[in-house]
Structures are given as structure tokens and as C-alpha cells.
Design a protein around this nucleic acid. Sequence first.
RNA 1: GGGCCCAUAGCUUAGUUUGGCUGGAGCACCCGGCUGAUAACCGGGAGGUCGUCGGUUCAAAUCCGACUGGGCCCA
Length: 988
Amino acid sequence: MAVDSEHVGAPAPVAIHERVLAYWERTGVPSAVVEGSPVGPTFRFTEGPPTANGAPHIGHLISRILKDTELRYRRMRGERIVSSMAGWDCHGLPVELEVEKRHGLKSKKEIEAFGVERFCDECRHSVLEVASVWREMSRRLGYWLDYDHAYRTMDPPFIESVWWSLKTLFDRGLLEKGHYVLPYCPRCETPLSSHEVAQGYHDTTDPSVVVRFPLEGAEGPPRDLLVWTTTPWTLPANLLVAARADLEYSVVRTEADREAVLASVAVPRFFPADTAVVERLRGRDLAGRTYSPPFETPGPGPGRYRVVLDDSVTTDDGTGFVHVAPSFGPDDQRIGAREKVGVFDPLDSRGAFTDLVPLVRGKSFKTADPILLQDLAARGLLFASGSLRHTYPFCWRCDSALLYRAIDSWFVRTSRATDRLVRYNASVHWVPEHLRDGRFGNFLTEAKDWALSRNRYWGTPLPIWLCDHGHATCVGSFAELAERLGGPLPTPFDPHRVTVDRLAIRCATCGAPARREPYTIDGWYDSGSAPFAQFHYPFAPGPFDPAGALDFIAEGLDQTRGWFYSLLVIATLVFDRPAYRACLTNGMVLDESGRKMSKSKGNAVEPLSLLARFGADPVRWTFLSVDFTEPMRIGEATVQKTAARTLGTLANVVAFHLENARADRLAPVAERPSPDRRLDRWLLSRLEGTRADVERSLDSIDLSAGATAVRAFVDDLSTWYVRRSRSRFWADVGSPDRRAAHATLSYVLLGLARSIAPLLPFTAEWVHQEVGELGYEDGAASVHRTPWPSSLAAREPELEQGMAELRALVEVGRELRHRAEVKSRIPLAEFVVFGPPASALSLLGEEGVALLAEELNVKRVSRADGDQRGRYPDRDWVVREEGGVALAALPRKPTAELLEEGLVREVARRLQQTRKDLGLRYTEPVAVTVGAPPALRAAIERRRATLAHDLLADPFDVVEGPLRAEEGVRNWELDGISFSARVVPRSR
RNA sequence: GGGCCCAUAGCUUAGUUUGGCUGGAGCACCCGGCUGAUAACCGGGAGGUCGUCGGUUCAAAUCCGACUGGGCCCA
């Protein structure tokens, strides 16, 4: 039968992937282990819920790989994962936007015409659809969570928990209403929080104009204040001009009978060098002077249109005068409030001008710019006009230009807890570490109040009702709502806007009827509540511990202002403790040429196609092999290359082992062997070192260190242990050395499988099943149900050191052979090792000498002292020297006898190859006839007994000259000598 | 304008915390070898101003400063 001698070969990674995935799913492995040990120590974790508004992209793979790796390790350690629930972030603008697109809705008006109830239903369904795509990706990636009991931020129990926490904040005076300038999206018609704005800055071109503000009541020629702005649309809302008290201003002549005022340092920016300065004065000299505003607006209040002083005025750019529109800027609002001039906001909720500014009535703020400028120019008020390229905030979801405007909003008063936020953050183990005091820490010290309310539909409703006396009532549970309502809630109760907006309750302060504040809350508050709200805390019993911070979270770096922040704020303000102990972040995934991936550029790599093409482990290994804390360049070619290396090599070693073990019917060895051979002990020691490295790496969530250790071990295993042990694997099956080699390799592969199970779950399972001969039958026998090994073998550092030195000697020997131009197949008489490196030989003893001799194909390894260099003249020896000291020497030429031996060995290999080509078993006897020229024939004859034995050849005939060409005869040429042979199986 | 991070061979990277032997490795490339792991394995070669400049030091990829390029964040 030819089958036995066919190579098993290593299956492609994707085939391994499919086989293992099918086994897990058939036998229910993931659900059996996902929670870890029910009785083990708690490992607190929360899945950062992806916003279910679109299909996952490749950037979503990396954080899942990191999370899964750590969780697998914790499970093997016997810990209990609290919680292993998957989660979906269901609320918020992203979801609404998706539904708006689907139904072609362009504004809140259209949503209301569409029907808010129907709109919210659509949002709900959209979320459920998208979640199934994510679940499929996770399944193929092997990201094991409890998807059947996923938490959803839109579920009533989740919302009730969020309400509970909001009430807690409210009772502590940390949730308040205010009227402040906030970033505002005119398309979404809602304010955004600063961390949302942070996600949407990009470059844009705006007008850059200088406008004349004519001063009133002065003698002499008319004087204009020159005011610089990049937002002409705010000019109709102008109420004041700010100057700085101590700043020097110059009055310059612009035309024959007209003068302009601006900061002296700004004069060269706008006027030629020879411009005459009429007068110099200080900002304070101008205070109180009135001017005529650029646009007439109805009902000017008292105190408007005058010059005021403020330190926020800078001269870095502009003219030293700042136009103040209190409704459209934080500084403006502050100055306006101080000067008690009120506000004037001529924009409607969609950012379009109202009747208050007839000139641009109905125009959105941005499109009004040119019209306003044209009008100013016509009236001679436009002094200079240009454009400016700068960064400007845009809506992170719909990409509309934002505007800053004063608006009613509810705030979480994070600014009152800055010191605690900073302190709790200081205890976090950040990876990379610099985030703690760097980007994240800086953000905390500057933290502003969190603008929580959103003027939207699909979100957790803000549970606050107001009565006509202005008392606010915050409702912290459904039961409390029913109580204040004075009757039962509708059943089933869905606590979203459509329902709760209709519920009028009694004010908690005065008992008067109260109406709900018509807001939803920032979706980031929902996800930040996930650690407790997923358990319906405090309404239902569960494993959530209010005093316990999460042990581990991992997400992309973009979450610093998002989830990492909202988790910390809520944990600090509600539970007065840190939110998490360790936070692992990853950078952005770029394409192979370093560009951002985007669907529009067409360079995006689909996670599912990547997984389908390569399987999960090559993808996982790729991400673990790069520096994932920085931006990564990843594409199909990267995965192919990275994966082929370690995974391909390991698969080959396993295939090699299986082939030998099966041929000899040797059972796998799972008990720790205690071999005599140093090579075996060396491998066991290296295995234990690798196991310990992976353990250290996963304990300290420094995942790539583990991957580096595994890569190095697989390399050693393949390129040294297996290579150096090959002949042992085809020794007689009864021999102790054959047994020892088998025991060592099978034990090492099984131990390796357990050690890499967290990093390479599919490959580990494959090795575990194949080498362990488990047959993918029993789910309980999965490698992922084995405990993490605390020790696999004895560590022998000196042995490892000695082996490293020995391998360095091999390299020296190879180099010498290369220089002597003697091929490896020709044996040489001697390899001489001088001086200190010989310590490798003493550490490894006779075995080391034998290894060296075998690897270098020399008959003898000898040792010499350095001063014996003279015994090895350059005429006969090639010598490796370093710094004038001899290291090793090799004869320049083989003896005639050794040359002949090499040649015959070559013949033997050709004949063995022929056996293999014929598909013969190693044990099948053959009849061989060799035809060779006289010299070679004589050489073969001298060694015929050995050859016949090795080839299982009987009869073994050697004749002179080439054989006649007939069936089964093959011809070869060896260094100019040709010979032919015929090999025939005896059984045929 | 401010803050944080990154920079080692064509590519992916080890080494940087704690300064010290000729800065390791893999892929790709060239040459050669091996042939019961074969889309594997082994050797040799070529390829590094360790981003640039300066400083500290007996000694700097490593520590300090500035700069350049890239990324992220803030205003």
C-alpha cells in the first residue's frame, strides 16, 4: 500500500480553522467555558459595547483579539469572568442617523412627520439586525462571550439602572441644568459633549475678514475699530467689542478723511510700513466708547454696542479687537453675562436665520456668510477680506459643521470631582503606560462639565420632570415613577420617549403637575453604566460589587474620550472608586501603505473576508506580532507573511511528529518525561521558559511579549530540535532513544498547545486534538478546558546557555566549510575547537561533541589550546580567528576515503529517493541493480553490506557501465560521474 | 498655538525601563547546500549614519536637549 508512505503534510491554516470551529460548535465548547470557573476568584471585565449602527471593520478585530487572549488565560487560570456578557450600545445619534438614511429623513421635522414612535421602532430593529453581523464576526474570530445573554442599553432593566445612577447624581447635586455655550450640530439639532466634538476636528477653509465698526461721538474724521473674524455669520448677533486694557493701539489714516484703530503690533499685518500713525493709546482709553453695529437688529438693549475690556483678547492674529456675540462663544457668553447685555440669538434650531435678520432670513449660518459680506462691502464696512485654512469641529457622525451656541442643557458636574478623577486614574495600569499621565491624565485635569442632555429621540430619556415653579424631580426607578404618577405604568412598560413624554407626574417638592424635560441622554453615559446596568443593579441580585473596579478592559485608543472617560466619571461620582484597574489600548489599523482605511477609498479590508481567507489564528497572530499600541499597517499580504512563519513552521513540526508517531503506532505521552539526552532536556527547559514568558506577559497584559517568546520557541523547536533529532525518529521503534525522542516531542507539543491556547486558540486546539489523538469528539477534552500549566518542566539555564554556544560553534564550522569549499555531504576528518568556546562542549559532554560532529559531518571533534595554533598550518587547514585568537579549524580537503564515502552516501540517497518515488513503505524489501563506472563501482562494492542493509535491498547487484534503458531504470550524474540503477519491489 | 506618542535593514521586529562584548532575528533578495517536514529545512552573502544635530559619559540605539518626519489628542 502506497498510502502509508505518503506524507500527511501540514494542513492549511484555514483548514485547521474550519475543522476546529466545527468541533467547538458541535460539542458546545464555547458556552461551556465562557464564564470561567463558577467557583474561582473573580476577574471583573466588561465588554465595551460596540455601537450597533454598521458592520464591523478591521479596527474592531484588534481589540477583540486582545480581550479574548486575556480572558482565555484567566479562564485557564480557573478564574470566574464577571461578566462574560456580550453587549450592544443601542442608543444615540449613530443609530438614529442610520435609520434617517434608510428612510431619507433629513431633519427633526421630517422625523416627527414620520412619527417618533415608528422612528424609535426602526432604530430598535436596526440595532438587532446589525448585532447579528457582529456576532458572526466574533464567532469566526473565536471571540468567546455570552452572546445569548448580551446586555442591550435599550432594554428597560438597563435603562432603569441608568436612571438609578442619574438619581444618585441628582441627589448629590451633581446633575444640574444650565444655559451655556456648547458645540451644537445644526443637522442633528442637538448639542454635543466635548468628547464627542473631539472626534470630529478637521481642516476647512473659512472666510477671514476685517470689518469696520465705526466709533460714535468722536470729533474729527470718522474712526473705525478694525475687527477680525472668521465667522461673519455671528456679526448680526454682535453686542460688544472687547479690547485689552494694557494693550497699545494705534490710530492710522486709511483714507483722506478716515481713520482706523487697531493694536499697534497688528499694524504691519494690514498696512504698508510707511503708514502714518496719528495717535497711540491704550485699550483702557477706549473702554465705554460706543460704535454702530455692523447690522441693525431689533430692540438693542441697554449697554450694548460699546467697547469693553477683557484679558482673553490676544494679538497672535487679528487686530486686537474681538467682536462679542454672547450667544455664540464661551468667552463671548462670559463677557456678555458680566456686562449684563443679555443674549441675542437670531438662529433657529436648524442653524438658519429667523425673521430677526431679514437680510438672510431662512439661510443657514454658513450660507449666510457671503450675503452678509456682500452687504458689508456695499456699505463700505468691509476693510479686508480673505480666507483661512484651519481646523474646525464637525459633527462626529453626520459631518456637519458645528457651531458654538448658548443652549439649555443638563450637565453632570464633573468639574467638581476633578481631584478624585485624577486620583482614581492614577491607580490605573495603563498600557501603554504614558496614557495615564499623558493624554488621558491631561484631559482629566482640564475636564469640563459633561453636557449630558440631547435634543433627540432614540436614547435613554432623561428622568427629570419640571413643574411650573421650576422644581426638578428626578425619578430613580420605575416603581418611583408609578408612585409619582399615582397609578400603574403602562404594560408592557417601555421607558423610551414616546411613553414617558406622556406621563405627567406630581412634583416631589410641591406636588404640582410636572412635565418631563424632553431630552435623551448622551449614549456614552449608557455604555459607561454597563458594568452595573448589565446586571440591573441595584434592582436585581447579581454579581456586581459596587466596591469592585473592573480588573481589565481593552479597547481602541479612540475610547480615551469616550468609554474610558464615561466609565471613570460614573465610577467616581456614583461609586467613589476607580472604574478599572488595567486598561489596554490599541492604535488605529491602517492599510499596507500607511493610509487610513475607508470604504470610499476602497482600501478597507473586510474582517469577514480576512477571516474566511486565512482563518482566525493567522489574523490573531498578525495583530499580536506588531506593535498594536501604535498605528499598524495591516493587509492581506501582512497576514499571509506573518502567519506563514510561526504557524506554518509549527504545523510542519506537528505533521512531522504525527507521521512518525502514526507509522510506529506510538501513543502520545502526556506525562512529564525525564530523558537522559541533553537535547531533550534542553527542549523541555526551553518549553518551560516559553510557558513562563507567556504567563508573565498575560499577567502583566503585555501581550506581544508572549507572542515574541512563542515565535522564538517554535523556531528553536523546528530548526534545532527536530532537525538535530530527525534520525532518532526513524530509529528502531523499540529503542530507548526512539522512545525518548517521541516522548519528548509529543509532551512538548501538548505542553505548547496549552501554553499558546490563549494566543492561538485554533492552532492550540488542533495540536491538542491531533497530537493527543482525541479525534475532535469530546467537548470536555478541548484544550480550552484544561487548566493553565503552572510548570511544564525543569528549567536548566546552564544547559540553554551551553546549547546557544554550541550553535554558535556550528555556525563557525559552516563558515569554515564554506571557505574550504567542501560540501556538507563530504565528511571531513576533524573539527578543532580552540580555547574558551569549548565550554559548550563541557556543558553538553559527549552528546555535545556528537551533535557538533553530526551537524558538521566530521568524523571527530577535538579540542586544542590556543597556543597550539601552529599545529594547524593554513596550507592544510582553514582557521577561524577573532582578534588574533584561533576559535576553530577544519581541514581544507577530505581524504580520498572520506571523499569516496561521501560519494557512496550520495548514491544511497538517490536510491532512497527512488524508493520514496515508488511509494514504498520504509519496511518493504526491494531488488536493486546499480550500473556505475569502475571507480564508483569499486567504492560501492566496498560498502555493499551497509548499503544493502540501509536500502533493504536483496539482491543488491552492482555492475559496470550504465544499465540499458528499460522500464524502472533511472540515471543520475554526481559531480561528473554518471550512474544508473533499477529498483524493483520484491513483492511485485 | 498647546499636549502625548512613535522613528532600528526594502518589510515585520528584538534590544531602550537599569548606558558596556562585533545592534540580534524572520520575510524578501543573491549564492550555495540538503532531500523519509518538501508551497519545508540548512549555510553563506549583501543590506543598518539605530530619523537629524548637539550634549552628558571612559563608553549612547539606550540618558538629556533641540530639530525633522509621522500619528493621535486638545484649543
